[in-house]
């Protein structure tokens, strides 16, 4: 089944499949690490808001190009702009108005999407809205690949270099502050890197689905391993496996890649949770058996 996919990868004159696969593999490194931050620090809603608000920037860039003839802002540049802006707004809201954070997060989510739809609506000519929402691997270019690699370098350097600091801030922010760590700066940096990571995968699997690929591999890894660092590396490996298998499946059955990748990730997550649950039941069953056997043993001894 996958021979066609491999054949296309190796011999096709069209490079987009190769780019998509390489971008997927490279991006998985960042996704494993940032996904672990997002899952263990419970920033999922926040990551969702950022990924949707990205449409605002994409829409703005498209409108500037199509409607006003301004060429300096590419859709990718607009997406980065929107992601950084929304991360900044959410970070400020989180730091200065803690109790209203969820309201701000949802507002950023809706405002970003509305602005994006509005800009795309007034942009003359055809705009591939569905490509941005659900992903389109035809959009992945060689320069995207280099950007993904650069992001990997940044994420790896931050997460290895400041491993203990980020871990301490994620586990107990107040105590980290007591140790002289600038926790607000760390929080903002984490949000910023999360925002950039999301942007880079928007082309591949789209605004709506990117959040699933960020959280599912890390969450699945968290079910299996017991260390923060292992959760990151296993999360990255899972993410790679989901992307490669998803791309192959979508090529083989002629399906859109984004949903295939996300559904595969979800399926694996559910399977892991189910197996873990069943194993837990089995263990408890054994414990009950052991208890009864032991009880009988004591009785025999008494007799």
């Amino acid at each position: 089944m996958f021979t066609e996919f491999i054949h296309a990868l190796l011999y096709s004159p069209l490079p987009f499949l190769r780019y998509a696969l390489l971008a997927g593999l490279a991006g998985s490194v960042a996704f494993g690490i940032v996904g672990t931050w997002v899952v263990t620090r419970r920033l999922t809603a926040l990551a969702g808001a950022i990924s949707h608000a990205v449409l605002g920037g994409i829409g703005l860039a498209a409108w500037l190009r199509g409607g006003c003839g301004v060429e300096w802002l590419s859709p990718m540049g607009g997406a980065v702009l929107a992601a950084v802006a929304s991360a900044g707004i959410i970070a400020i809201a989180g730091i200065y108005a803690k109790e209203r954070e969820d309201a701000v997060i949802n507002a950023v989510w809706a405002i970003g999407m509305s602005a994006g739809l509005l800009f795309l609506g007034i942009t003359p000519g055809y705009v591939d809205l569905q490509g941005y929402l659900l992903g389109n691997i035809l959009l992945v270019t060689a320069s995207d690949l280099y950007t993904v690699l650069a992001l990997d370098a940044v994420v790896l350097a931050l997460s290895i270099g400041f491993f203990q600091v980020i871990l301490a801030c994620s586990f107990d922010e107040e105590f980290a502050a007591m140790r002289g760590i600038r926790t607000k700066l760390v929080y903002f940096l984490m949000l910023l890197v999360t925002a950039l990571t999301i942007v880079l995968f928007v082309n591949l699997i789209g605004i709506i689905l990117v959040i699933a690929l960020l959280t599912l591999p890390a969450a699945a890894a968290g079910q299996i391993v017991r260390r923060w660092s292992s959760m990151m590396s296993l999360g990255a490996l899972f993410c790679m496996a989901f992307t490669v298998c998803g791309l192959a499946g979508s090529y083989a059955w002629n399906l859109p890649p984004g949903p295939v990748i996300v559904l595969l990730a979800a399926l694996c997550y559910v399977l892991i949770v189910a197996v873990k649950y069943a194993a837990g039941r089995l263990k408890r069953g054994e414990a009950v058996l052991y208890y009864f056997r032991n009880k009988r043993g004591i009785k025999e001894h008494e007799d």
Binding site: T40, R41, F171, D172, F175, A176, I181, G222
Partner: peptide
């Protein structure tokens, strides 16, 4: 402390946070 109830961190790592000095 109330982080994620399944936060993957070892007991020894928690204690070590007490000697963390700066960024």
């Amino acid at each position: 402390v109330a982080p994620d109830p399944a936060f993957p961190i070892g007991a020894g790592e928690v204690v070590l946070q007490g000697v963390l000095r700066s960024c």
